[in-house]
Computed example of a mutant assay.
Amino acid sequence: MRRVPKRPSSALAERWTTVDGVDVFYRESPGPVGPAGPVGQAGPPGSPEPATRTMMHLHGFGLSGRYLLPTAELLRDEFHTLVPDLPGFGRSGRPAEPLDVPELAHAAARFLDDRGVESATLVGNSMGCPVICEFAYHHPERIERAVLVSPAGGIYNQPLRRAIRQLARDGSREPASMMRVAAPDYLRFGVPSTLRLFRALTRYPSLDRLLALRIPTLVVLGSRDPLMPGPARIREVARQSENHVLVVVIDGAAHAINFSNPGELANVIRQFMADKPIVDDPDAPGTARAYEIHRGSLHPPAVP
């Protein structure tokens, strides 16, 4: 049943739409926005609002978009921000058959169709990153940039028992408030759906799709993330492609960086979108520190 809570959980507007016959719950920047285009650039003649680039945030395995909100809310005034619960997840309805990674990517594209968005920058966490890579593979003209935060689903997370151990270790490294957000989502998603989707992720060519990206791509890793290999392996992978990839580490962060370190992550995303050097955010003091470990030769050069 479609319900918007009496007390919204977000500074974003909470809305419903229908995609392929499935009710989809999403959050969106409140107020009017201009058509898609560079930030600050004037819209078409007669347009009352400046044009704003669209940024869609895609959640991870078994979760809803709710845990992405701390970062998405910090960027809502700079980008036309969308945070959907993909079909089968969170408060959205369940399709007749569960969706695998390619089908989730197509559902994300059709959600943008529904919202009248031609192209967007996609920001994903964990499983959301393979969904973005698949979106870029099938819809390259519709993705401006990719932000892959703690990308998961590759061989490093196999078999299932290894992934479960990694998730258990990560749980002890996340803020306690993350479990209050995640637990209802996991319970709603259910064990059968978890097993089915994990099998789909093990068959997904994550590395091939990542290396096939031909757009500016930001990869953000947490130094305390047990689901990710170390920086040396990440550099090795990044160097295998004609490189459009910028790799950044946030020291002290675990897997759910969008939730636990929103200030640092939003700062890194802003710098990436403006082609600025990645420097730590002086307005987000604490144990976390952001720094580059790889800037590909084909990545847009940093503008001082």
Rank of each mutant, 00 (worst) to 15 (best):
residue 207 L to N: 11
residue 160 L to F: 10
residue 244 H to G: 14
residue 268 V to G: 03
residue 28 E to T: 09
residue 81 T to K: 11
residue 36 A to P: 10
residue 203 R to D: 09
residue 140 P to C: 05
residue 95 P to T: 12
residue 80 H to P: 10
residue 68 L to D: 11
residue 122 L to T: 04
residue 239 R to K: 09
residue 47 S to N: 14
residue 205 P to S: 03
residue 166 Q to L: 08
residue 49 E to Y: 14
residue 237 V to N: 11
residue 180 R to H: 15
residue 82 L to S: 04
residue 181 V to M: 12
residue 66 R to G: 05
residue 203 R to I: 07
residue 172 S to K: 10
residue 124 G to T: 05
residue 6 K to A: 15
residue 158 Q to H: 14
residue 96 A to V: 06
residue 177 S to A: 14
residue 152 A to G: 14
residue 205 P to M: 10
residue 269 I to D: 01
residue 284 A to R: 14
residue 146 A to I: 06
residue 9 S to E: 14
residue 125 N to E: 07
residue 59 H to A: 00
residue 110 R to C: 04
residue 246 L to T: 10
residue 58 L to G: 06
residue 136 A to F: 13
residue 303 V to N: 08
residue 247 V to P: 12
residue 2 R to L: 12
residue 55 M to Y: 00
residue 43 G to P: 08
residue 131 V to S: 09
residue 92 S to Q: 12
residue 298 L to F: 07
residue 76 R to Q: 11
residue 103 E to N: 03
residue 244 H to Q: 15
residue 120 A to E: 02
residue 248 V to F: 01
residue 68 L to A: 11
residue 12 L to T: 10
residue 246 L to K: 10
residue 293 I to S: 09
residue 289 R to T: 13
residue 167 L to V: 06
residue 163 A to M: 13
residue 104 L to H: 04
residue 255 H to D: 04
residue 103 E to F: 00
residue 215 I to K: 15
residue 278 I to G: 01
residue 257 I to K: 06
residue 159 P to W: 03
residue 23 D to K: 12
residue 209 R to S: 09
residue 168 A to G: 10
residue 100 D to T: 00
residue 195 L to A: 01
residue 198 F to H: 05
residue 57 H to W: 13
residue 115 R to L: 11
residue 197 L to M: 04
residue 132 I to E: 04
residue 139 H to G: 11
residue 11 A to T: 09
residue 300 P to Y: 06
residue 104 L to R: 00
residue 35 P to E: 02
residue 85 D to G: 10
residue 60 G to C: 03
residue 158 Q to F: 02
residue 59 H to K: 00
residue 22 V to M: 09
residue 152 A to W: 14
residue 1 M to V: 14
residue 196 R to M: 13
residue 162 R to C: 13
